[in-house]
């Protein structure tokens, strides 16, 4: 503790993490049962934000095993992103038409 106010960046990240857990908790509580499946499918699409890590892995110009891993992860996450949002859209369209 030499410089009085030096906080490890990890602590900030931990704070963000904990607050986001609470946000997720409160945001979902009031969901109507009919929307359970679309909500699941949209959270699934959102969780493929892991593609951010994949893009960085595939970023360097020279080819490497990490770049191949990144490339494969990009494909998997992209399937999920496009599939997830399109399928949610289809479900919600059906939902509105009948209403």
């Amino acid at each position: 503790m030499e410089a009085a106010a030096v906080i490890d960046p990890f602590v900030f990240r931990l704070a963000i993490f904990v607050l986001a857990i609470f946000v997720g908790y409160y945001v979902v509580w009031s969901v109507t049962p009919a929307l359970h499946t679309p909500l699941m499918s949209v959270t699934n699409a959102i969780s493929s934000v892991i593609i951010v890590g994949a893009l960085i892995a595939a970023g360097p110009e020279e080819i490497s095993i990490a770049k191949i891993f990144g490339f494969a992860a990009i494909i998997l996450a992209a399937i999920n992103i496009f599939g997830g949002f399109v399928v949610t859209q289809r479900m919600l369209q059906m939902f509105r038409k009948k209403k």
């Binding site: 990240r13 963000i16 993490f17 986001a20 857990i21 997720g24 959102i46 969780s47 951010v52």
Partner: peptide, 12 residues
């Protein structure tokens, strides 16, 4: 971003 979204999806 990964931390926010991860926590969000994890808890929801």
């Amino acid at each position: 971003l990964l931390i926010i979204v991860g926590a969000l999806v994890g808890s929801s």
